[in-house]
Simulated assay, not measured.
Amino acid sequence: MTRTTPEAERIVVVGAALLDDGRLLAARRSAPADLAGRWELPGGKVEAGERPEDALVRELREELGVDAEPVGRVPGQWPLRTPYVLQVWTARLRPGSPAPSPLQDHDELRWLTPAELWDVPWLDQDVPAVREVSARWGAGLS
Rank of each mutant, 00 (worst) to 15 (best):
M1D: 11
V85K: 10
R51G: 02
T113I: 00
E59L: 12
T82G: 10
E53R: 07
Q104S: 11
E62Q: 11
V130K: 09
G15E: 05
E40V: 11
D21Q: 12
A48L: 15
Q104N: 09
Y84H: 14
E108Y: 07
V74S: 02
I11Y: 11
P128K: 10
T90I: 06
M1Y: 14
L103A: 04
V13F: 13
T113F: 01
Y84E: 11
E59M: 08
L64W: 07
W78K: 06
P121V: 03
A33W: 14
D34G: 02
A48R: 13
G72E: 14
E62Y: 12
P83E: 00
R73K: 09
V66H: 09
P70C: 12
L35G: 00
D126V: 03
L56A: 11
G22T: 05
D34P: 03
L24A: 00
L35M: 04
Q87H: 15
S101R: 15
R131H: 08
A17W: 01
R51H: 13
G44R: 00
R10T: 12
L18F: 04
L141W: 14
E40K: 09
P32A: 00
E53S: 13
P128Y: 05
A8W: 06
L80R: 11
A139G: 14
W89T: 09
D124T: 12
P102F: 11
L64C: 01
K45P: 15
W137N: 06
G140C: 08
P95S: 07
L25S: 01
R51V: 12
L18Q: 02
L64G: 04
T82P: 13
W39V: 06
D124P: 01
A33P: 03
R110Y: 06
A91P: 01
V130Q: 10
T5I: 15
E69P: 03
H106V: 07
A16M: 15
A99I: 10
R110V: 02
W78F: 15
A115C: 04
M1G: 13
E53Q: 15
V57R: 15
T90D: 03
L86D: 10
A31G: 02
L80A: 01
G43L: 03
P6L: 15
R58E: 02
D54Q: 15
T82K: 13
V74Y: 03
A129I: 11
G43S: 00
D124F: 06
V88A: 00
R94G: 03
D67F: 06
P32M: 14
E108V: 08
A8Y: 01
P98C: 08
P42A: 15
D21M: 11
T90N: 05
A48V: 13
D107K: 10
D54S: 14
G37V: 08
R3I: 07
W118A: 01
V12H: 06
Q77C: 11
D126W: 04
V74G: 02
Y84C: 03
E50K: 10
A99H: 05
A26H: 12
G43M: 01
T2E: 12
P102Y: 08
R29Y: 13
D20V: 02
R94F: 01
A99W: 15
R73M: 03
V133R: 04
G72H: 13
G65E: 12
T113M: 04
E9N: 01
R23S: 10
W137S: 10
R110D: 01
